[in-house]
């Protein structure tokens, strides 16, 4: 298998799917001439031309709506948001149009489209550019929401998202684009709705998604040095959520920490904990703990930002606490 970056993996997914199906096109700010704000679409304009790799004005609400209209009449748009922070301007198209068209038309208008872009915090970008929106989007019936944490999952999930006949949200990580991992040279898809047991332990389950997968894997390495072996359950998709994978792991380990990038209130972790209390009530040896961003907008100052974010130390502390080691 080749070792490539998360960015290259996404690029390969786009190239392969655009080559496979001429109804697929990419639209967004700076996707063409500039080769993508984060270079995910590098080379695609040259290969596919300006009708299929479309630079837009800065107009999120507008071009998200263009994607919705194109999907209604049979194209398969991939709409890139430069970041999901900017997608808030387009949320009407995502929530009121894409997610509801099939239902309110009584099944007449499927919406085969993808909304994708980087989600969550990078480094010192402060409040308006550092937000993780998984829970907002996962709240909406009619959407699927995937959050790849590795190059392998990024490629396989984006390809599956483009082939899906429903609106799929792909939440990438700005801090993940340069990360590397093994990606097969032969074609594959990662099924939407399936979690992945990224590490098998047995003492405790860390249930996580997206960028936090790397944090969980680091925590697993550190904890192993103290003889603590954890399951790392990477949800990969947060809607629909793979409840069976969560339940299987927690029934085995009897302890769980839920790690997410976003805020606590009504977060993804709240939903995971609800599944655990319903399905694993008699299996728990400790209350489930959550690790998440502090309940504040993201500050700029380096030290404050570090305190605000969920990280390795907080995760390790939570695991040790549910194991009654501290």
């Amino acid at each position: 298998m080749a070792i490539i970056t998360y960015r290259e993996a996404l690029n390969q997914a786009l190239r392969e799917e655009m080559g496979r199906d001429d109804r697929v096109f990419l639209m967004g700010e700076e996707v063409g001439v500039y080769n993508g704000a984060y270079k995910v679409s590098k080379g695609l304009l040259d290969e596919f031309g300006e009708m299929r790799v479309v630079d837009t004005p800065i107009t999120e609400l507008g071009f998200a709506g263009v994607g919705v209209g194109a999907a209604m009449v049979g194209l398969r748009p991939v709409i890139e948001f430069m970041t999901w922070n900017f997608a808030l301007l387009a949320i009407d198209q995502v929530v009121n149009a894409a997610a509801k068209m099939l239902y309110m038309s009584g099944g007449q208008y499927p919406m085969p489209m993808v909304f994708r872009g980087p989600n969550g915090a990078a480094l010192q970008l402060s409040a308006q550019h550092s937000q993780a929106f998984e829970s907002w989007l996962a709240h909406i019936p009619g959407l699927k929401v995937v959050t790849p944490g590795t190059p392998y999952d990024a490629k396989g999930l984006l390809k599956a998202a483009i082939r899906d006949d429903n609106p799929v949200i792909v939440l990438e990580g700005e801090m993940l684009y340069n990360t590397k991992g093994e990606v097969p040279e032969t074609e594959y898809l990662v099924p939407i709705g399936k979690a992945d047991l990224k590490r098998e332990g047995g003492d405790c389950s860390i249930i996580t998604n997206g960028k936090m997968v790397l944090v969980a894997m680091n925590a697993a390495d550190q904890l192993a040095k103290d003889g603590i072996r954890v399951d790392v359950v990477d949800l990969r998709t947060v809607r629909p959520m793979d409840v069976e994978a969560i339940v299987t792991s927690v029934r085995k380990t009897n302890r769980a920490v839920v790690l997410e990038e976003g805020w606590e209130i009504a977060g993804i972790g709240a939903q995971v904990v609800d599944y655990i209390q319903r399905e694993c009530f008699d299996h728990l040896d400790a209350p489930v703990l959550r690790v998440h961003q502090e309940d504040v907008p993201m500050p700029y100052a380096k030290g404050l930002e570090k305190r605000a974010k969920p990280d390795l130390q907080k995760t390790i502390a939570a695991v040790r606490k549910v194991m009654y080691l501290d």
Partner: peptide
């Protein structure tokens, strides 16, 4: 049902026609 929301959608249908 959202005032204004369907106008970009119409542009998208126009885009698909041209595509």
């Amino acid at each position: 049902g959202i005032v204004g929301g369907h106008v970009p959608v119409a542009a998208g249908v126009g885009f698909a026609i041209k595509y």
